[in-house]
Design a protein around this nucleic acid. Sequence first.
DNA 1: GCCGCGCTTTGATCTGCATCAAATCGGGCG
DNA 2: CGCCCGATTTGATGCAGATCAAAGCGCGGC
Lengths: 247, 247
Amino acid sequence: MVVSGEKVTAATPREEPAIPHACAVCGVRSLTVCAPLDNEALTAVDHIATRRSFESGDGIFDEGEPARHVFNVTEGAVKIFKLLADGRRQVTGFLFAGDFLGLASDEAYAYSAEAVTRTKLCRFQRRELDEMLQRYPQMERRLLDIAGNELAQAQEQMLLLGRKTAKERIASFLLLLSRRAKQGGRQENPVTVPMSRNDIADYLGLTTETVSRTFTKLKTEGLIELLREGKVRLADREALSEIAETY
Amino acid sequence: MVVSGEKVTAATPREEPAIPHACAVCGVRSLTVCAPLDNEALTAVDHIATRRSFESGDGIFDEGEPARHVFNVTEGAVKIFKLLADGRRQVTGFLFAGDFLGLASDEAYAYSAEAVTRTKLCRFQRRELDEMLQRYPQMERRLLDIAGNELAQAQEQMLLLGRKTAKERIASFLLLLSRRAKQGGRQENPVTVPMSRNDIADYLGLTTETVSRTFTKLKTEGLIELLREGKVRLADREALSEIAETY
DNA sequence: GCCGCGCTTTGATCTGCATCAAATCGGGCG
DNA sequence: CGCCCGATTTGATGCAGATCAAAGCGCGGC
């Protein structure tokens, strides 16, 4: 298996250069399924991992496809989504550095995944990772924790989709992004909003227009400031929290 | 009655109870986290389990409460839900015999749980179950599977809440109930709908009135029949599937 | 068997967000 | 630097489902 490198060295069937190993210098390890691993386990994981890069908009996998791989996001942002036959789309999550991608017990992916920004992933054969999980039970326990957190997050999102108003949804979303940025060691305020209005709309069960109008309204009310490069300053976090009714 | 053909360790210092343990005769074991356990493990599980009964409407636990227990539903139906400060409610799931209740890695329950019908639960101290999971890795793997399935189901529900029309939601819901009834060994058609219109509304992100109207419309169109005791006959499953766009 | 009350159904009206439409922005590229 | 095109914002109108209101009904209790 050749890691697709730069064109200049394309002919060489050699693997990555002789860095100790990539996992050893992984900046997001403490956030991932790899967090509890000792050196021996980490070396083993390193041997079954391959790194892949994606440009903004690149598909990573499609719903229904055989789920042969799982991933860790090491850089960038990813959206996962489901489609209806007529093209209606629901974004069921955004993933950032440290997040696990591909958790689903079934044979096939339950959703599609696509890079939102330039993104780097750490990829595993599911079968090989399963062996890992058997060898290192602390890894399996960690994965169960991750699954539990995702489930709680999913339920929070159901509450949002089923019962919150547009304004509450946007406030909740901004606070979620900020919270996630903080826990990933990124800047929490102003927060970077790397996804398009349309992606946000499909995540919040709204339309692009409503998302845009609601941002404008929050800005007019002085609760947020819209900055360059998709950054948003949460000017009155207190008030936003009150509106969101959570976090 | 002793389960025949299984090994009985002569060295066991403890007597088995005169009555076989409840786990041995558990009718839903094959559906639960206990499915992969051998006799020894099952006996251990039996010792840390207590059985509890609930009447329709009884609370089982509340969101935010310290999550000291986890449960298996052995009979009946349970709803889990989250509330907003002003009383808006989102039912995030209905659980039936065989379902696991309380999966959430955190210290506190992420949602409230309440019996929808007369219900029986098998209750574990979370701490004791955790020890179990360490002793019996196949149980932990099973739990990870369960979590994966719940996650997939949650995403399906987000698609429903974010993007489906009222009619599509009701059709999806009826098919889901029927599918779950089948996999739990209950009658799939006509399907029993044990929860109130209001609970259904709070699950589907609608109002009671819209749920009622939509049932009526489906009936008028000949797709379903409303029978006694909350049973619904799916008269044209084909058409319902087409409307639901899934399953 | 009858009563009463909560649940469900049906009806009339209202509204938040969708839809349709069009300007404006902004950033990548020659 | 200026052009171009998709993304965003803003505006006008429509509608699915919410809300408000009032009958039906069905089930448990007596």
